[in-house]
Design a protein around this nucleic acid. Structure first.
Lengths: 171, 171
DNA sequence: AATGAAATCGACCAGCA
DNA sequence: TGCTGGTCGATTTCATT
C-alpha cells in the first residue's frame, strides 16, 4: 500500500546478511556462509546486489569519539523566524558547523533538533554562539548530555519481528 | 585499557587513516597506501594498533533505513518521576524498545531524549505508548521529523582544524 | 546457485632506522 | 618503536555449468 519507498525485494537471507554486516563486516565470506547456511557464492552474489541497489550504502569504520576527545554531547533545539523561507538553507548551515553530527527538521513549535559533539566547554559555547549567529535563527535551547545509553546506527537490530515481517511481505 | 579518556597518541597519519576509513573501508591496503603516501606495511601496522587500542571500534555496513521501510523518525522527550532511582534502568528499557536508535540521559528539566525510527503511524503510536507504560516514566513529548538534513556517524569529518590540533597536541 | 581456477589481497616476519 | 620489502597462505572474484 505504502509505496512511497522503493524497497528492493528482500528475503530472509538478505536480512540475515544485513543483520550480520551491520554488526561487523570483518568476517570473510566463508564464515558468513557457514553461519547463515548459504554458499560462499550465494553470499557474494547477494552482497553485490545489496550494495548496488543501495540497501547497503557503505562499509565504514566506527570510531570512538572519546579517542578524539569528542566526549561532550549536546542536543540543541533551534527556533527559526517563520516568515523567512530560509529553512532549508539554515538546515544546511547547521549541518556544516564543526561538531554537528545530526540535524533534524521537525514539525511543531521547534524547527530543528541538532545533536553535536565537542571536546570541552569552550567549544560548546562557541558552537551555540555560531548557531545563534546564523541568519534567520531566532532562539536556541540546549541540553547537556550526561550519558549516552544507546547510540546505534544499526537499523535491523532494533526492529521488532513485526517490522521485519512487513519488509518480507512486500516481496 | 578501559573506557576512560585515555587518548592513545595519534599523529597526522593515524588521523588520515581514520578519516579515510570513516568514509569508506572498502579500499584495499595498497590504495590506501598510495593515497596517504605511506607503505602498505605502515598502514597495516597502524591499522592494527588503531583497532587494538579501541580507537576504531568496529567495521560495519551502513544500511539505508528506507530500504527496510524505516522512514519515519521521531524525537521524544521523556520525563521521569524524580524520587525513583530508576533512571539507569529506565534508560536501558528505552534502549530496548523496537525502533529506538539513540537514548541520551540529559541534564535539565528533561530526563531522556530518544531518537527512534518506525515504519508507519501505527508503530509510532505504539512506541510512544510503550514508552509511557514504562515504570517510572511520568510524561513524554514527541516531535515528528520531517527531514533529516544530516545523520552522520563520522566524527573526524565534522571536526574543525582547532579540534584536530587538540588531538595532535596531546602526543 | 555451485564449482573450481585464476587473480588479488592481507598477514606476517626478519631485518633496519 | 615504527617501518621496509618480500613471501606465503588465504580470500575474493569470475567464467562456466
Amino acid at each position: 500500500m505504502n509505496h512511497t519507498d522503493a524497497t528492493p525485494d528482500l528475503d530472509e537471507n538478505d536480512l540475515d546478511i544485513i543483520r550480520e554486516l551491520e554488526r561487523n563486516d570483518e568476517k570473510n565470506l566463508e564464515e558468513l556462509a557457514d553461519e547463515l547456511d548459504l554458499s560462499k557464492s550465494a553470499i557474494h552474489y547477494r552482497l553485490n546486489q545489496l550494495k548496488e541497489s543501495g540497501v547497503i550504502r557503505n562499509i565504514s569504520a566506527d570510531v570512538d569519539p572519546r579517542a578524539l576527545g569528542m566526549s561532550m554531547v549536546i542536543i540543541t533545539e533551534v527556533y527559526v523566524s517563520h516568515e523567512s523561507g530560509y529553512a532549508d538553507e539554515i538546515g544546511d548551515d547547521l549541518a556544516d558547523l564543526p561538531g554537528v553530527q545530526q540535524v533534524f527538521y521537525t514539525m511543531g513549535d521547534v524547527d530543528f533538533m541538532v545533536v553535536s559533539r565537542v571536546q570541552n566547554h569552550d567549544q560548546m559555547n562557541e558552537l551555540i554562539d555560531e548557531i545563534v549567529a546564523l541568519e534567520g535563527v531566532n532562539e536556541t535551547s540546549s541540553r547537556f548530555v550526561m550519558r549516552e545509553l544507546k547510540n546505534g546506527n544499526r537499523i535491523l537490530e532494533t526492529m521488532s519481528e513485526g517490522m521485519v515481517d512487513r519488509v518480507l511481505e512486500t516481496e
